[in-house]
Design a protein around this nucleic acid. Structure first.
Lengths: 232, 232
DNA sequence: CGATGGTTTGAGATATATCAAACCTCGTGG
DNA sequence: CCACGAGGTTTGATATATCTCAAACCATCG
């Protein structure tokens, strides 16, 4: 039995465009891999030799300047696609934030397979378009929002994207409480702020009773409406 | 004779994936349109009814907050594709900066056509992937760079993207002198700054002899190396 | 010419960064 | 079990880049 058949993201990842026959073929060129938190799958500037699907976990995409400033330019979740098919070098590194499982392909193999399966390319196109939309929305946050608005927006997005499909509760209800897959420094690198500013905004939101912080890695949204107002 | 056959971007836009026969079919569902500077082709939040190819001119993609802050999230040039195929609403407005010519399709027609022409979808995928790369690089600028670095990076990118293919000089040499398609306010909206800060950085770069400003809408790069150093 | 819209310059206010110290939390080894 | 240490986090005091508000300036067009 191929690994794909029992894959938890089988129906959500780009693989959902393939029938059993095709899936079997794809399975022969891919392999599973586990990543520990902090482990990287690719590095900024290297040529793009791998692509992958996220099966489980949360990973960051990040770039930096030569003098060490870092910016997280994307966050990927289960069923998301990673890497840069069709030539060029990858402009950002990919690093696991939590323990993660991914399904890896050599880019060459994947490119060839994709070119023969338009339905797969179509799914990939849809995903890429959606990712571009999300990324552009994030530019508004980076360019025009205040620190408070940034953190509030971030927490709201997080609460929406961390929902596991097929979990208890109404489908796709944003979470009220969740474990942050980010350190304070990483939150700062997502929002284009310093760690101190992020910390101060966290404590402010808590002091105002809008969120609660059971531990450093957990967040409870106490008053979602107020948090939405804070997000600007 | 179909308009496509004489189209100046015929070999660079996504249409380059099509043979004469297919191009003729595409031609029947598209039409040309001219836009004056300031004229919009689509608006933020409306559902995506149109897509288009840019034939000539420069257009901006922009979003804003409710309280009127604006952020330009993309700039498109001849041969670029505009709009959001395959469902959803467009997350940003599209407005001409210079007089522009575009080749418009109803999204429904275009979607149907694309689904039947995998080579076209493939081109579109490549373009979308490239645009996503560029957008992510821009996030580093918005999140982590200083005003001076931002303006320098902007001018350098501008000098590269404004080159007309098939023009005099070594192919694809960045321009030394060019007309800015942006007002100062629009530059500010690209860089996530205020108009005053942009103005001060312009005068500083000029005072330091790195650039020259023959007029408010023209820029000469006097010392490219220094400008690259300023870009961080 | 004089009006108009965009731009530059100036002075001052402010959000965020920077530098520095105190504070948790958790694992380790005595 | 407790002391210790190390990393990450919070808090504080100060500096600074950028914003804000305001006025002067300049080009363009009737």
């Amino acid at each position: 039995m191929s690994a794909c058949e029992t894959c938890v993201v089988r129906n959500r990842a780009i693989c959902s465009s393939l029938d059993d026959e095709e899936l079997k073929a794809l399975n022969t060129i891919g392999r599973r891999r586990t990543l520990e938190p902090g482990e990287s799958l690719m590095w900024e500037g290297e040529d793009s030799v791998l692509v992958a699907n996220v099966i489980d976990g949360v990973l960051k995409l990040s770039t930096g300047t030569e003098d060490g400033r870092e910016q997280i330019v994307g966050v990927v979740y289960p069923s998301d696609f990673i890497g840069r098919p069709f030539g060029s070098t990858s402009g950002h590194g990919v690093t696991a934030l939590t323990e993660s499982r991914v399904c890896i392909f050599s880019r060459r193999d994947f490119d060839a397979f994709a070119r023969e399966h338009p339905a797969l390319e179509h799914k990939l196109l849809q995903r890429t378009l959606a990712e571009l939309d999300r990324t552009r929305r994030w530019m508004l946050l980076l360019g025009r929002k205040s620190a408070g608005e940034k953190l509030a927006s971030f927490l709201l997005e997080m609460s929406e994207r961390l929902v596991q499909p097929g979990c208890v509760g109404a489908p796709d209800t944003p979470l009220k409480r969740f474990a942050l897959p980010f350190s304070r420094q990483q939150v700062a690198d997502v929002l284009g702020l310093t760690i101190e500013t992020v910390s101060r905004q966290f404590t402010r939101l808590k002091a105002e009773g809008i969120i609660d912080l059971p531990s450093r890695r957990e967040v409870t949204i106490v008053n979602r409406q107020a948090l939405e107002a804070e997000a600007g």
